[in-house]
Amino acid sequence: MKNLFNLGLSLIVAVILTSCDSGSMADADKMKPVSEVPVTGPVTVLKTGTLTAQSSTNTKGMVQVVTNAEGKYFVRLTDEFTTKFSTGTVTVYLSTSDKLQLATSGSFQLVSIVGKAGEHFFPISGAPDAKFTHGIIWCGAAAIPFGFAPLN
Results as ranks from 00 to 15, higher is better:
147 G>C: 10
28 A>W: 02
115 G>N: 14
62 M>N: 10
150 P>Q: 10
123 P>W: 10
24 S>K: 01
105 S>T: 14
22 S>E: 03
124 I>F: 04
40 T>Y: 00
83 T>L: 03
104 T>A: 11
79 D>S: 05
134 H>R: 02
22 S>M: 10
131 K>N: 04
41 G>T: 05
54 Q>G: 04
63 V>Q: 05
17 L>S: 06
67 T>M: 06
97 S>I: 15
123 P>C: 04
95 S>L: 04
97 S>K: 02
151 L>N: 08
146 F>N: 12
119 E>S: 08
119 E>C: 04
47 K>D: 07
7 L>C: 01
53 A>R: 10
146 F>I: 13
58 N>G: 12
58 N>H: 09
67 T>Y: 02
77 L>V: 12
70 E>D: 14
7 L>I: 06
115 G>W: 15
65 V>I: 15
146 F>T: 11
149 A>P: 06
45 V>I: 15
120 H>T: 13
21 D>N: 03
63 V>I: 15
48 T>L: 05
9 L>M: 07
52 T>C: 01
91 T>P: 04
35 S>Y: 02
52 T>K: 03
94 L>P: 05
132 F>M: 09
49 G>C: 02
139 C>G: 15
112 S>K: 13
44 T>I: 11
11 L>F: 05
145 P>I: 12
35 S>V: 05
147 G>R: 09
115 G>I: 11
19 S>T: 11
47 K>A: 12
79 D>L: 08
103 A>Q: 09
148 F>A: 12
39 V>I: 00
128 P>A: 14
25 M>P: 02
99 K>Q: 15
93 Y>T: 01
37 V>N: 02
25 M>I: 06
104 T>Q: 13
104 T>S: 06
48 T>E: 14
